[in-house]
Design a protein around this nucleic acid. Sequence first.
DNA 1: GCGTTGACGAGGA
DNA 2: GTCCTCGCCAACG
Length: 113
Amino acid sequence: MDRASFYDQVYQVVRLIPKGRVTSFGAIASYLGTKGSSRMVGYAMNGAGVVIPAVPAHRVVNRNGLLTGKFHFETLTKMEELLALEGVKVVDDKVVDFKKLYWNPAEELDLER
DNA sequence: GCGTTGACGAGGA
DNA sequence: GTCCTCGCCAACG
């Protein structure tokens, strides 16, 4: 796994996010061991739409549950659309019941990887 | 090799 | 509760 760049590691984890669930950048960063590099997680998502298979970046939001990355999608409504299709309600660019839909890789994936 | 960037997070006022 | 500042670290030019 050491061959995988930080980007790849982020993609891997994001792809593991269950449908209808969301997580935060910090959670992913923490899981990868680079807790302080929470920004890198988001920065890595810049290639989420070009890598194969595609990365469900719409399931990744900031700690507020706010769709911070919606501006990086094809359209501004694309992100909340995808979430809505998965049963995730989005109001005012933020995930409803984010706390309940929150998916913690460290808890769900445990000692995976 | 250096400086800048950045879809964030935590702490303080 | 909100607003501001600092830090964090990998990728990019």
